[in-house]
Simulated assay, not measured.
Amino acid sequence: METDGRTTGTIVLGNSAIKRYYALKIKPPITEPPTKLRIDRENTNIEDKDAGLVWIPELFTFDSKLQSLLTDHGRQLMLSDVAGLPIGRVPRVLASCFYSILDTGGEICTICNGDPSPSFPPWPSTQEKGGGVVIPCNYILTVTDTDKTVQMLTDTLSLIPGGNAMKIVKSF
């Protein structure tokens, strides 16, 4: 859809990750259709003003049949134990882009597409600073100016080694 010369739409940033799983150790629910995890600012982070958290939706947003769904078999955690909690952070390199989107009225969520695993390109390897265990995901951005957002993401990804491993797909 076009508004004031801008094209509104959805952008999917694929082959990405949720960082800092090792700090929180909360696995997202795997549901069908996939659960959309919300992205929000982490205003209390004094070390990084652009930090963004990835949150599991509140329990009341899920079908009552899913409330006893096991999200972590090893720790016996159910959806009712983890709903409404953060599971990790938006990678630092993407956070400022995401804030720009949120500040202009856009929305961002993510869908996990795998279990926590060792970092993969373009993220640092597990032995490097910033590496570790990540949750593979695709970020879904609903934006007011798709062309400007794609350019901003492309520019940002060009600054990181292996940034071309992430895929940007526009849809309207």
Rank of each mutant, 00 (worst) to 15 (best):
L153P: 11
V150Y: 00
L159K: 13
P86C: 12
P124T: 02
G163Q: 07
V54E: 04
G5T: 01
A95C: 13
D72V: 04
P28K: 00
R89G: 10
D155L: 09
F172T: 08
S96D: 15
S119L: 03
R89K: 13
S80R: 15
P86A: 14
P28C: 07
R6V: 08
V143R: 06
L13V: 12
T10Y: 01
L37T: 02
G131T: 03
S117P: 00
I160Q: 10
E32M: 10
I11Y: 08
S119K: 07
D115H: 14
K65E: 11
R38E: 10
N45D: 15
I56S: 09
R38I: 11
I46F: 11
I18A: 04
Q76D: 06
K167N: 13
R38L: 14
S119A: 10
P91R: 11
M152V: 04
S171T: 14
K167W: 03
W123H: 11
L79S: 08
V82P: 00
L157K: 08
T146C: 08
G52Q: 12
Y21C: 04
L70M: 09
R89C: 12
T154N: 10
P136N: 13
I56R: 01
G106S: 10
P28A: 15
F172Q: 14
P33C: 02
K19L: 00
H73I: 09
D48L: 04
N45A: 06
L59G: 05
R75P: 00
G106K: 04
E2S: 13
V134I: 15
D103A: 12
K27G: 02
G131C: 11
A165C: 15
K167I: 15
K19V: 10
E32L: 09
D147W: 01
G106E: 07
D115P: 03
G5N: 07
G74I: 01
D40T: 11
L94N: 14
I30A: 06
Q151A: 12
D147V: 05
L69V: 06
L69Y: 00
R75M: 08
T126E: 14
G132H: 05
S80I: 02
R6T: 10
L70R: 09
C112H: 07
W55K: 08
K27I: 06
K170C: 09
D155A: 07
L85V: 04
G105D: 05
S16C: 08
L157W: 06
A23N: 08
S171W: 03
S96A: 13
K49V: 02
Y21L: 04
I56D: 08
D72C: 09
G132T: 11
V134W: 04
G84F: 12
L85Q: 15
R20H: 04
A165W: 02
S117V: 11
D147Q: 13
T44K: 12
I108F: 06
L53M: 06
Q76L: 11
T104F: 07
I11K: 05
E32D: 10
I39S: 03
D63K: 14
M1D: 05
Q67D: 03
I18K: 06
T126W: 05
G114D: 04
R38G: 03
Q76N: 10
D115N: 15
R89Y: 15
P121W: 06
A23M: 07
V169M: 10
I46V: 12
K148Y: 10
E47H: 12
R41Q: 09
P34D: 03
R89L: 14
G9R: 09
C109L: 00
T31D: 01
T35W: 07
